[in-house]
Design a protein around this nucleic acid. Structure first.
Lengths: 269, 269
DNA sequence: CATAACTTCGTACAGCGTACCCAGTAAGGG
DNA sequence: CCCTTACTGGGTACGCTGTACGAAGTTATG
């Protein structure tokens, strides 16, 4: 389960580091570490071993320093997680291009293609950094990367006939769908590692009970579906990600078309 | 963040208790507790104080027993979580009605209305038991409640022109959307309690940085949207749940219509 | 060169899940 | 009837966590 929280602790600290960068103090010995290096190591550990393996001691070992040295750079684990998140979100952003240019690029193939590309990017990001899904983003700390991503998405949808609130809801819809599905895939993929139970042992244990409900007259539809191979795991479309994404985009497209009929977008007839 | 895992530990035990019930041993003193009472207490604690407050010691205190007594009934915390999940899933199920009857009832207003009702039920369940979203269901332990829910959904969609795999993908799509959105709402709602930072303090800390990007020329669209009140929190439609649900259902409806044209459902012309 | 600012990091503490073990209780067999 | 056996209750202890505190070492400044 997830037990790490974003946006707790010293929010001001996280924000300052994210937006401002670090400034070197003048006196005393040179710092042997940096916030960036700590965040990088933390992401490395979380990627490889999962969020539950991410302890301050583990990060310190990774960096070859004492545990408490980390607290010279970061107020606590909560702030570190904030920084990890914004750093990960920033991976796909080109610092050379501002949000306007990026949105323009995405618009080239139409807003639907652009939205699809954003969704696929987010999907890949979550598969690359599965721990993100375990961070409860109760109060998203608005770092530059997440803000930039949001601006790009809003700009992409701007002028197609939706008002600001509708644009926001469309973005939220796509994001909810992507994260909801990513959760299923990520968790299934890491099940063996995380639970300490191998796939084989798990299904050996479930087997007798599966047989039980497959032959139960109360579950005929499931029995038929199981026989058709529905439960045989990944079919190459990560738990129906592509299928669902197209349905979601279809639904949004219908809405945009209806909104355009009610109130034609500027520039159209 | 989430750090509890379903489907680890003694899976066979969880399944046995879920499907079989407990049998009383003959010798020795009568057990003062029962698995059901422990699960109930655990859910109570998790509902009220969040998953991070759910410790074996806390449950024992709640029940007025020693911590280690719990281990007479449950092999460990992992199995307890399995049982909590299936118990929660079972809340909306009427034990008097079998899946077939329930599906029939849901079909009365058409498959779309039925699916909408399932989605809304799942939505309410997640808001009632927010901790469910923090349990990483890497390997879902197939308890009777989750199986029954799946059978009902499959039966509802049966015969409308989709094959088994397509039906499953539709269900997965709706479920992903609901859980993805529920996560946003639940986490936002419990932010103050969980993070130990009040709404006021949080926004006081974010404020200066919000101002910064709202006046930044790189984020004009966000600035406009913020002025339009897009960020002012819940607008009565839990982060666009209803909006998104209708878009998702629209997308599914279009797909079903297309599938029906290709290969007419049995019973139609 | 003394001082103040800064560094590293060992130790300690409370809380976690739970392994181990012993004491107490009640039913079954002689 | 009582001893054996199976069971329940739960105290103690261990290794893990995040992190508060403070001691010791390093360096730029007055």
């Amino acid at each position: 389960m997830t037990t790490e929280y974003s946006g707790r602790g010293d929010v001001a600290f996280s924000l300052k580091v994210m937006w401002g960068g670090e400034e070197r103090p003048t006196r005393g010995p040179r710092p042997g570490l940096s916030v960036a290096r700590i965040v990088e190591a933390a992401i490395r550990v979380a990627d490889a071993e999962g969020l539950s393996a991410l302890s301050m001691r583990r990060i310190a070992t990774e960096l070859g320093v004492g545990t408490m040295s980390l607290y010279r750079y970061v107020p606590g684990k909560a702030e570190l997680v904030d920084l990890m998140l914004d750093t990960a979100y920033g991976e796909d952003l080109d610092p050379e291009r501002d949000p306007g240019q990026e949105a323009e690029r995405l618009r080239a193939g139409g807003w639907r293609a652009g939205l699809e590309q954003i969704a696929r990017g987010s999907w890949a990001l979550h598969l690359r950094h599965p721990w993100i899904l375990q961070v409860s983003q109760a109060r998203p700390v608005l770092g530059p990367s997440s803000i930039t991503g949001l601006e790009i998405a809003m700009r992409l949808l701007d002028g197609i006939g939706l008002d600001d609130l509708q644009m926001m809801k469309v973005i939220t819809l796509v994001d909810s769908y992507v994260t909801g599905t990513a959760r299923l895939v990520v968790e299934a993929g890491q099940a063996a590692q995380r639970t300490g139970v191998s796939d084989e042992d798990f299904w050996d244990a479930q087997g007798p009970f599966l047989m039980r409900f497959l032959s139960d007259e109360r579950f005929p539809t499931l029995a038929r579906a199981a026989a058709a191979g529905v439960f045989s795991g990944d079919d190459g479309d990560g738990f129906g990600f592509e299928f669902g994404l197209q349905r979601v985009l279809d639904g949004i497209e219908a809405f945009v078309a209806a909104a355009g009929r009610d109130r034609p977008a500027p520039g159209s007839a």
